[in-house]
Amino acid sequence: MKLMPCPVHGERNIAEFVCKGPVLSMPSATHGSPQLWARYLFLAENKAGIIDEWWLHTASGMWFVARRDTTCDEILQTWSIEAYRKERRKKQKTTAQR
């Protein structure tokens, strides 16, 4: 049994979770071009390596983000949505300062 370290429920059987695909930034509903939408919807990077993904805990209906290595299926870290947003903002700030 593979375990998922859920940010709320702790380690649970991975069968309780559903992977909902990589975290992507959605194009603007009003200003996004068809090309941008096609890229967002269909044209995946499909990377072999470390990616951030949406996961859903089906029993509780809770969404969160997990960082996973797509070459070995190892789950490296998980965040609640709030914690993940905070982390992203922090990262954006430091890259902007550079």
Partner: peptide, 13 residues
């Protein structure tokens, strides 16, 4: 399998 993966391992599930 339920998510993206570049690996040909087999699982009990």
């Amino acid at each position: 399998d339920p998510c993206e993966l570049y690996n040909t391992r087999s699982t009990l599930e």
